[in-house]
Design a binder for these strands. Structure first.
Lengths: 331, 331
DNA sequence: ATTCAGATTGCAACCGGTTGCAAAAATTGT
DNA sequence: ACAATTTTTGCAACCGGTTGCAATCTGAAT
């Protein structure tokens, strides 16, 4: 169907190798033959078959981009950044949606079949074991938004969620709240566990503070709303650290529809600083995760791992920052 | 690096063909050899290289998924649906982000290099010519959310945007609004043009109605907000048909921050019915596009086009439906 | 035991490229 | 003009599979 190397070679009156070399940089071709080849290629509309060449070079430039966060608007930003960055680097994202797949086996098998050069797991809710499965299969892998460990099994790029928890706690304490709630994301997620740990650590050291905690079923609007509605049925705290921004927005919705409002009746601080957080009708105080840096660094790291597949697993952390908006009372 | 056919064949004590046939269905292999092969394969951890096989079969099962809508939350839903559906059908999405790429040439070349079996263009703002470039290159293509035409150049799946415009107009008229605004999406987009046409057609037939119109720069929150702020500076209409939901939310934000509210002071009707539209703190009256059906149908159509590449270009339309929520005054 | 159709198997060529190697051509120095 | 280098070129084997074909095997029927 498509034009092949051979046809171009014939038309240009050169050998197949000559054509091949024209399209591999670093190869030795005289300007004269290169011209001939390029002319013939243009006339025929030839473009080299990347997959065929991957057979011999062992590189497909395909990167598996795996995620299970297809209901969190933050991840649209994440996908945008990843796809652009990968494209800039000449890599192609093969997108894998893990939403209803718990077992790594399937994805592993399929990504092996497509001989991806590497894999980026973009999720804060997938277990570290998931990423490890790729590592064990000798596929370079980076877990973006994954859990920090000082000696990780796989490359990890993200933030120190424990520190984020502390930061949220300090922010709430500094504003004089005395009755404070931790409204976490799904219980099993490492991000939830770590944020809670940091949060409780700081709270434990504070005097005269009452702390309560609960969890939402997912990092989603609905889950955040449901969890907050439940809070509002009992005696609620004065302010909450919510699992993430989309949950926060759900919580805010619950607050408003109960006739209350933030920050007057209840304070909310989220996490992520997704685009929506700064929308005027949301105006969420939150902790910013530097997602662009995380993405760029992940891509850089996966590329480095391609070069040296024995590279020692590395954890890259970026610092977060409180973004003051309108859902906490002022200092 | 990876285990190959040959190694499995040697270990199982059979020919390479036998191994190959074990993994291609419809091929003739005795239960006995199949057993041997499967045993050897399991021991070695073999999985066939899909790309190598694509070389002879001419099918990669790779589908280019092209979009430029990485700032519209609706498209996270769209990507979710597409990736899942494609996976269910054994196809793999190669995601292409067109955000800062206007020229089809580059994407075309790269998708040719990866010999994708077909392409899905998911966008209502890309010009029909874009999709046509693939068609001209003999790559099966479906334009999802594209413009309806009775004799389209390429397969199109979507809604009748002209009818959506009419539907919005009728809805607003039925609620007794007399001064009505069309706050369209980007002027060049076919979706904007068509929705406007239908809208104006109905308005033109109504008596005693004052109509005004303007456009936002993009289907985005910011653009919607900015456009509405501008409206509010002059004499605004009583109700607006906004380009889409995310623009509507931007517009609502502008309305609120001007001390007004919907539907009391201004009515808003959006389009899409994305997940956020039903969030309690948004509660947007809108026109639902059946995106799941559009996605499923697109995948089905691209698969059909794979089978028969001479298939005549077809347009598939799905009907929309007004979803009553709280941003228009009641009937 | 023999025949014969149908199922199974291996050989070898091919898919569209890449690459080590040795021969051929171009360049350099004298 | 000639030898020594350096560059460019084509050959042929290979990457990891598939597939048409002819040979072999199987089992049922005679």
């Amino acid at each position: 169907m498509a034009v092949t190397l051979k046809e171009v070679a014939e038309r240009a009156g050169v050998s197949r190798s000559a054509v091949s070399r024209t399209y591999t940089d670093g190869a030795s071709v005289s300007p004269k033959t290169r011209k001939k080849v390029e002319k013939a290629a243009k006339e025929l509309g030839y473009s080299p078959n990347a997959l065929a060449s991957s057979l011999t070079t062992g590189r497909t430039k395909l990167i598996g981009l795996i995620s299970n966060n297809f209901h969190n608007p933050l991840f649209l930003e994440v996908f945008d950044l990843f796809t652009r960055r990968l494209q800039e680097k000449g890599l192609r994202p093969l997108l894998v949606n893990l939403t209803d797949e718990t077992d790594p086996e399937n994805s592993l098998r399929m990504l092996k079949q497509y001989s991806v050069d590497g894999v980026i797991v973009a999720s804060s809710t997938l277990s570290p074991e998931f990423a490890k499965a790729f590592h064990d299969a000798k596929i370079p892998v980076v877990h973006s938004f994954g859990r920090f460990a000082s000696a990780p099994d796989v490359h990890v790029v993200g933030v120190d969620n424990v520190e984020c928890g502390r930061m949220a706690a300090r922010t709430l304490l500094a504003r004089g709240y005395k009755h404070i709630g931790f409204l976490g994301g799904p219980k099993g997620a490492t991000s939830t566990i770590d944020r809670r740990a940091g949060f409780m650590e700081v709270m434990g050291q504070a005097k005269g503070i009452k702390v309560k905690e609960s969890n939402a079923a997912a990092y989603s609007f609905e889950a955040g709303r449901t969890a907050m509605l439940k809070e509002l049925k009992g005696t609620h705290a004065e302010a909450y650290f919510c699992g993430d921004d989309v949950m926060s927005i759900g919580a805010l919705s619950a607050i408003n529809s109960s006739g209350l409002s933030a920050p007057t009746d209840i304070g909310i601080i989220g996490l992520n600083d997704m685009e929506m957080a700064k929308w005027e009708n949301i105006d969420l105080t939150t902790i910013r995760q530097p997602i662009k840096q995380i993405v760029d660094s992940s891509v850089e790291l996966v590329m480095a791992a391609l070069e040296d597949s024995n590279r020692h697993p590395e954890a890259r952390l970026f610092s977060c920052q409180v973004i003051e908006r309108g859902t906490l009372r002022p200092l």
